[in-house]
């Protein structure tokens, strides 16, 4: 049993888009769509700006609204990994999940099914890290199992200010950002 997730260090991230481009190729993401993206938030006035760079994707929530609303049983949270996935064959492309996701993480693949980040489950199941985490030049994206004793993910969060996206939505995201 595992509970996979990510700890993403905004202090390391430079917003270079290596994660996005490697994902395009690893997952053959159709042109015009993306499964991960960079958010740049700048506040303050010169010279005292504050900048936050985040590599974002599906949060693989513990309480995933996309799964709850799916009328076809296509969206599911995988037993044993916690990865939120879509059965392409069951999906009708109704977009209920797109509306339910507070993170705009999903899109309808031109082939007709809901598509989004899978944590590269095909790689994870082969003992590898997701494409984005593997290539990230700054090691900002860290992937692992929160349930593993002594997990690197917990060590990374020690002593750091940690946030998840839209905690008020009650989705219990499994991606944590270090500020």
């Amino acid at each position: 049993m595992a509970r996979y997730g990510m700890v993403i260090d905004t202090k390391r991230c430079v917003g270079c888009h290596s994660c996005v481009i490697s994902c395009f190729l690893e997952n053959e993401v159709p042109e015009g769509y993306t499964r991960d993206w960079i958010v740049e938030v700048v506040s303050g006035k010169s010279p005292d700006f504050r900048m936050e760079l985040r590599s974002e994707r599906c949060n693989h929530c513990d309480d995933p609204p996309c799964v709850f609303v799916c009328p076809c049983g296509a969206s599911y949270k995988e037993e044993g990994t916690g990865i939120v996935l879509v059965h392409k064959d069951k999906c009708s492309g109704c977009k209920a999940c797109l509306a339910a996701c507070p993170y705009n993480a999903r899109f309808i693949n031109p082939k007709g099914y809901a598509d989004k980040c899978t944590f590269c489950d095909h790689r994870v199941k082969a003992g590898l890290k997701p494409g984005c985490a593997s290539t990230c030049p700054t090691k900002a994206i860290n992937f692992g199992d929160f349930d593993e004793p002594g997990s690197e993910l917990h060590r990374l969060m020690e002593g750091r200010v940690v946030k998840t996206l839209k905690p008020d939505a009650g989705t219990k995201p499994q991606i944590y950002f270090l500020l």
Partner: peptide
């Protein structure tokens, strides 16, 4: 391109295997 459901190079998708 997106509407036609092709990837940029027009190759058959092999999304399950990815690069493995």
């Amino acid at each position: 391109l997106a509407a036609s459901g092709m990837n940029p190079w027009g190759w058959p998708a092999n999304a399950l295997a990815g690069s493995l």
